[in-house]
Amino acid sequence: MFGDEPMHILHCDLDAFFASVEQRDHPELKGKPVVIGAPPNSRGVVSTCSYEARQYGIRSAMPSSQAYRLCPQAVFLPPDMKRYQEESRKVFNILAEYTPVIEALSIDEAFLDLSGSHSIWGSSMAIGHHIRHRVKSELGLNISVGISTNKFLAKLATNLCKPDGIMEFTDQMVVDLLPTLSVDNLWGIGSVSAQRLNHSGIYTVQDLLDAPEQLITSLLGSNTGFILGLAKGIDNRPVTPYEETKSIGNEITFPKNVSDSLAIEQVLLRLSEKVAYRLRRAQLKSHTITVKLRTPDFHTLSRSKTCPTAVNDSRSIFDVARMLYQQSGQEGKPLRLVGLTAGRLQGSEYEQLSLFANSGPDISSVIDRLNQKYTSGTIIPASLLDNHERNQ
């Protein structure tokens, strides 16, 4: 099916990253259910949680109050993004020693193209073991690694071997294993899409391949061709480093529809932090911010705004994102997905200064340094103060 195509794509994913950093830095938390996010007496949501907490059914984007009901003994902690970003930088520095071709999916996840690395570092499996050993020995964190011929299969391998594992998804597995997996293992099929397929008698990847394409199209829409390709183990997307990126975005699909406006705004804030971090890491700024909202009936709305000057700080991105959400007509209505994308990217050094731009140092870096010196959250942008106070 794939001939002699090399296993040159690695997918690396830090295990329960935020919670693992907290457990590493606070040994008394090891083995305990740890929840990162809003406190349980607020209307906020869970950002992420440890594997111990996941055993109780706690998941990202779940209301913190629900997480508390599931596990009253859980330790709830506010996110310390500055610390997580610093640890992420250390991990990406390790990854960059093995290849310059790295596509960061988020603060804790990346694809690596090892096409030019084997003559120096050995096989992809050997490189994966090197990376896992170094991240563990140097940083005290676990990272799972998937290896295959393309991005989808490499990420699938990681999902199957987590936590703290390494796996190579071979050509033979495409023939023997992939067809037996449930359809929600395919990239782009979330819980709601999986339910729709299940209601039509489609449970496995093989069921999907055997079903009439017209039926699949009615259920999955414009993504049908791409998803059917994945079902056959085909994914032609290249690993795209930052310098080739035309936009940077993150999105989240909720396990259950969310209608609470404050919870949606908190998700937008979290996405703004992720996107801003990825922009700064790539030394890029964005002129256009886009918010994507998907309703329970799969209707997708996109709202965009072009900023007068390019931005890469979470405050500016969140201000625009919140405004777009409030003007979308969906405020207070149930949503199944929220996404945020920064487009029209440019290098930071090429920014045309606004007439009213500050001539002093970047306020984001100043705040980062002060929060690092004292306590995270000591200083927050005034534009986020209302949201912050409502979470106390």
Rank of each mutant, 00 (worst) to 15 (best):
R270D: 02
E109S: 09
S193F: 12
L355V: 14
V275L: 09
V46R: 08
R83V: 12
Y51K: 06
S64W: 03
Y277V: 03
F111D: 02
T309I: 14
Q372G: 09
K305C: 08
K151Q: 07
P39G: 10
W187E: 09
G347N: 12
G57M: 05
V45W: 03
K373S: 14
L219K: 12
I127N: 01
G140M: 01
G329S: 08
H26F: 07
S106L: 06
L70N: 05
S115M: 05
E265M: 08
T295M: 13
S119H: 14
M125I: 13
K333W: 03
F76P: 04
D113C: 03
C12H: 02
S272E: 05
S123Q: 02
W187F: 15
S261I: 07
L269Y: 05
M125C: 13
D362W: 06
Q73T: 14
I189C: 11
G190C: 08
P100K: 00
S218G: 15
R369D: 06
N250H: 14
R344S: 15
M323F: 08
F18C: 09
G3R: 04
L177K: 14
R303M: 12
S42H: 09
T253F: 11
S47R: 11
Q85N: 13
L181K: 10
F318G: 01
R43G: 04
T341Q: 00
D260Y: 04
H26A: 08
T288L: 10
E213P: 01
L181C: 13
V338C: 11
S365C: 00
L105S: 07
N198M: 13
L215I: 11
A321S: 10
Q206C: 13
S261P: 15
R315L: 00
Q73G: 07
F92M: 09
E5T: 15
V46K: 07
R83F: 03
I120Y: 09
T245S: 15
T245I: 10
Y56M: 08
H133G: 07
T158M: 09
S200D: 09
V275N: 06
M173K: 08
A38P: 01
L268W: 01
D210F: 05
V91W: 00
K162M: 10
L181H: 13
S124N: 02
L230A: 07
E273N: 04
L385W: 12
L197R: 10
T149L: 06
V91Q: 02
R315N: 01
V258M: 12
P308S: 12
A157E: 03
C161M: 00
G229N: 15
T300M: 13
Y242I: 03
G249M: 00
D210E: 13
T240S: 14
D13I: 13
D108W: 06
S60T: 14
Q55P: 05
H26L: 02
Y68Q: 10
Y350G: 01
S20F: 00
S144M: 06
T180K: 15
P6R: 07
V320Q: 02
V35T: 10
G165N: 08
V35P: 06
P39C: 09
E265L: 03
K333P: 02
T341F: 09
M7A: 04
L177E: 13
T295I: 01
H26V: 06
E52K: 10
V34L: 02
S328Y: 11
I234P: 02
C12M: 07
I127Q: 03
